[in-house]
Design a protein around this nucleic acid. Structure first.
Lengths: 133, 133
DNA sequence: ATAATTGCAAATGCTTTGCTTGTGA
DNA sequence: TCACAAGCAAAGCATTTGCAATTAT
């Protein structure tokens, strides 16, 4: 049983055949696929799954705190499994490749900034766009 | 002549009656309107302007480096005039209100991060989502 | 003069939804 | 069993585009 399946169990998300397949594909994905790409991968395992189910599942998993949704430039939402460790993203403007990184100093400064403005930080989004040197 | 009109002149962007109106409205906007809101404001000055023109103009201004486009959560793109001084945004999750802020330390760290990963920083997006304390 | 811009409506692309049939706990 | 999920196609929403008429330089 893969990671996402386990999370579904622990969060009380009902598991169907389709959801298991989507869970498996996302669990082993090391990139950040959009729904089309995910649908393509899932279809190779079960060609009868509809894209509506993929959309519904991905939304369900997101609402359950299992997947993270990213709206990077490009119009299509991209997903990744939520991991214990928080990270941000650097997007290669030429290839679309995504590199994950962690920077504690930036994290702390964000909290400080929000605090100074009289806000409690709920969430944040940091994306760097760059090109290979 | 407002700020945006001046920028159009200096960048060689042709000015039409419609573009002048859109320029004026954006120039005096202190918030970050989406296209619908902008269209509404523009329509009060000239009710014959079509929303297609607003979309086209906003895109043209963005490509000319006159307006900045933001894809905050919520599905609709929001725009603001590009000012000399760079800033990031804190979005009030309850009201949708946007507070601008500047933090040089974060800026520097971003460059450092990209650099360490072997990238030249082209652009970045930092959004904080918070609620009033 | 004439290449570019507008307005309109139709088209697009991603995502959601209504409805009927199928299915997991 | 039976509330919930899947499949399909149609609908939604923000945004873009083709085309004929209009306009800025």
């Amino acid at each position: 049983m893969d990671n996402i399946e386990k999370k579904c169990k622990s969060k009380g998300v009902k598991l169907t055949e389709q959801r298991k397949i989507i869970a498996k594909v996302m669990s082993k994905s090391r990139d950040h696929p959009d729904v089309d790409e995910l649908y393509k991968r899932v279809s190779e395992i079960d060609s009868k799954i509809s894209i509506a189910t993929v959309y519904r599942t991905v939304k369900l998993f997101e609402e359950s705190g299992i997947l993270a949704k990213h709206d990077f430039k490009g119009g299509k939402a991209r997903y990744e499994e939520i991991s214990e460790s928080h990270h941000d993203h650097l997007i290669d403007v030429n290839t679309g490749e995504i590199i994950e990184f962690v920077n504690e100093d930036i994290e702390k400064l964000q909290k400080t900034v929000a605090d100074k403005l009289g806000y409690q930080l709920i969430d944040h989004k940091l994306e760097l766009y760059g090109k290979k040197k």
